[in-house]
């Protein structure tokens, strides 16, 4: 029963919230350019419209191209089920941990990259190859950051990690968590194809990464690919806010009321981080492609310093 409620809340919150973040980022970008911008809910309308449209499918493509959107979408959702949005309703264990989470996201990436090659388009290959490079460079940081929070909470399972983080109270007052926070921000930017790694609003062949892979998609396939990517972005943001800024220890009461309050605080946290990402996107320019390694290295070095501070130099004893 509790399990069913958990799954339902996860699905509802994450699917409903994910497109909103894109709306917020676009709105803030529009403000920074003295435009009014599209309505906040335009992303939802776009998705609904796309679902109803005819799909134009490349003559060269095969079944890989058609199943890829469903695989990408379901990996994003499966990943979302592994990352609790609130600890107020949460099963003690989930049948998955951080390593499985990374592997599931890997499955989605595998098929995104394959589908891009399936249409025999030069843009697809370009996007796929670039996505490969970005993911290779950022992957060590993803694993190490999750490993570190896991080590501190002595478990690789996300419910346990979140419980342990609640016990710490305010993790961001410790240097190691500040390092992880900054590194993870870079990870979110790289993994969800945002400026300065990738520019989601351009279709210029010199710069696009994720969009190049999506180029051939249209209609409902495009809609679920896009929604999948948005959900993946939200999953990463959820990891960040619920691990490093835990809030449920502040809510003393239990029951339905606490759950609602908890979800509201969660949404507020997510929107705050989204605004940070939007501001980063407004204030920076897209990096030259071969400068992305520097950014990835920066995130890894932050993590490594955090590791040294906490595990080697005895930060854990303070």
């Amino acid at each position: 029963m509790q399990y069913a409620a958990y799954v339902l809340i996860q699905l509802l919150v994450i699917i409903m919230l994910a497109p909103l973040l894109d709306g917020i980022i676009r709105k803030i970008k529009a403000f920074s350019q003295k435009r009014t911008g599209i309505p906040l809910l335009q992303v939802y309308y776009d998705l609904l419209k796309l679902l109803r449209k005819t799909s134009v499918v490349s003559e060269e493509s095969t079944w890989v191209y058609k199943i890829a959107p469903y695989i990408v979408f379901s990996t994003s959702i499966a990943a979302a089920l592994l990352v609790p949005v609130t600890t107020k309703i949460m099963p003690g264990t989930l049948p998955g941990d951080i390593i499985l989470l990374i592997s599931i996201l890997g499955l989605g990436r595998f098929f995104t990259m394959l589908a891009a090659l399936d249409t025999a388009s030069m843009f697809g290959g370009m996007g796929s190859s670039r996505e490969a490079m970005v993911s290779i460079l950022i992957e060590p940081s993803v694993l190490v950051s999750l490993f570190m929070v896991g080590l501190i909470s002595k478990s690789t399972s996300l419910p346990q990690i979140m419980q342990a983080m609640k016990g710490i109270g305010a993790p961001l007052t410790y240097p190691v968590f500040v390092m992880i926070f900054l590194a993870f921000l870079i990870i979110i930017i790289a993994e969800s194809s945002r400026i300065p790694v990738d520019d989601p609003s351009t279709h210029l062949e010199l710069t696009m990464v994720h969009e190049a892979m999506m180029l051939e998609y249209s209609g409902r396939h495009l809609a679920i690919m896009e929604l999948g990517a948005m959900i993946k972005q939200l999953v990463l943001i959820t990891l960040l806010v619920n691990i490093l800024i835990p809030h449920d220890q502040l809510i003393a009461v239990t029951g339905i009321g606490a759950l609602v309050v908890s979800i509201f605080i969660y949404v507020a946290k997510v929107i705050t981080v989204t605004i940070i990402i939007a501001i980063a996107e407004v204030c920076t320019v897209k990096l030259r492609f071969f400068s992305i390694p520097n950014l990835a290295t920066l995130s890894f070095i932050l993590l490594f310093l955090g590791f040294l501070q906490y595990f080697i130099l005895g930060g854990s004893n303070v």
Partner: peptide, 15 residues
């Protein structure tokens, strides 16, 4: 349910 029947149009890859 949302999008109705799946209609697809085959066309060349964008070149």
């Amino acid at each position: 349910v949302i999008g109705g029947k799946y209609i697809e149009r085959r066309y060349g890859t964008w070149d």
